[in-house]
């Protein structure tokens, strides 16, 4: 089996999620007879030649210097037409989510997105989560497949070092008529909240019910000297500003204590906080996915429990 891994670069730096995908590909290849190649647009970082892979395919074209989904698709189309890999693996980044579905339609090769595992069990088995993490599915493949790997599914430090060579691959992108015109990148007014450095985070989810209930969480955060975090819905409803959001579209955090109040724990939230040292979850639904990754779980009504905890902690402080 011939596996290609696409290495995404952000301002010249290799994307972490792409390397995790490479680690996953190496792991699968060791268990089978597969060969792993990396595919990279533009200059090859030295780092990439120090891994145990068959080769690095380097594709240099002025059209690929910055991200454009249609040029990316056509370049990859030419790579695949020339090399016919059985599987192409991507990190499940926002950029992947933008262009790889289009590539899938162009090539008529299915794209299995956001996988948590690639393994061999009498053939390739791809595992992905559905119903927001409540159910896993194992999928089998006939023919070729495109795969993206969820952030954190494979460990960066499990990458195997070695030596590899760089091969240049020429593409011709003249035929592409671009109808997508990416412009400038920007950050919204930078808030004062840096959750990535917080020691304790009290995070609020949809279960808080309404904005008027927010003080319950704020009082607990105050007595703990904690920052307030949230899942996406709380930000969507306008109950907290965007900079408090934890998860794939917000911040990635790893505090000493992450207290999840009324957070169901969808995959998109989990990827932002599962590295926390201690996760305490309070949720009325005992089947909520947050309990999959919680160190301590409380299946109860947060409105009954949280004020009492705040009081307990206040009494202790005196």
């Amino acid at each position: 089996m011939n596996i290609f891994v696409f290495i995404q670069k952000d301002n010249g730096t290799i994307n972490r999620n792409s390397l995790e995908a490479l680690a996953g590909a190496q792991q699968f290849a060791r268990a089978t007879d597969a060969q792993v190649s990396a595919v990279c647009f533009g200059e090859v970082n030295d780092q990439l030649t120090e891994y145990d892979i068959q080769q690095v395919l380097s594709i240099s074209d002025p059209g690929l210097n910055s991200y454009n989904p249609q040029l990316y698709c056509e370049a990859f189309n030419q790579v695949i037409s020339a090399h016919h890999p059985d599987m192409v693996i991507f990190g499940h980044t926002y950029q992947t989510r933008d262009w790889v579905p289009r590539l899938s339609a162009k090539l008529d090769i299915p794209f299995v997105s956001d996988c948590i595992r690639i393994q061999n069990q009498n053939g390739l088995i791809l595992t992905r989560q559905i119903y927001q993490g409540k159910i896993n599915t194992d999928l089998k493949v006939e023919g070729s497949v495109l795969v993206s790997i969820q952030s954190g599914a494979y460990r960066l430090d499990s990458i195997v070092s070695g030596n590899t060579s760089v091969q240049q691959f020429e593409v011709n992108l003249d035929s592409v008529k671009c109808t997508v015109h990416p412009g400038e990148k920007f950050q919204e007014s930078k808030g004062s909240v840096d959750l990535s450095r917080a020691k304790i985070i009290v995070a609020v989810g949809r279960g808080i019910g309404k904005e008027e209930n927010m003080p319950i969480a704020k009082e607990l955060a105050e007595v703990l000297g904690a920052e307030l975090g949230s899942s996406r819905p709380v930000v969507d409803y306008g109950w907290l500003p965007h900079e408090h959001q934890v998860g794939s579209s917000g911040q990635t955090v790893s505090p000493k204590l992450y207290l999840a109040l009324g957070i169901s724990g969808a995959i998109q939230h989990q990827v932002g906080m599962k590295g926390s040292s201690n996760i305490v979850a309070i949720n009325k639904d005992g089947n909520a996915p947050i309990f999959e990754i919680a160190d301590y779980g409380i299946v109860a009504d947060l409105f009954e429990i949280v004020p009492k905890i705040t009081q307990t902690l206040k009494d202790h402080k005196g």
């Binding site: 088995i125 159910i135 896993n136 599915t137 999928l139 023919g143 999959e292 409380i298």
Partner: peptide, 21 residues
């Protein structure tokens, strides 16, 4: 398409952590 995806099985995710309730 000659390239296809099939369901092998569905299951409840195994817990990665031991949760103390």
């Amino acid at each position: 398409s000659k390239n296809k995806i099939f369901l092998d099985k569905m299951y409840i995710p195994q817990k990665v952590k031991e949760t103390t309730f």
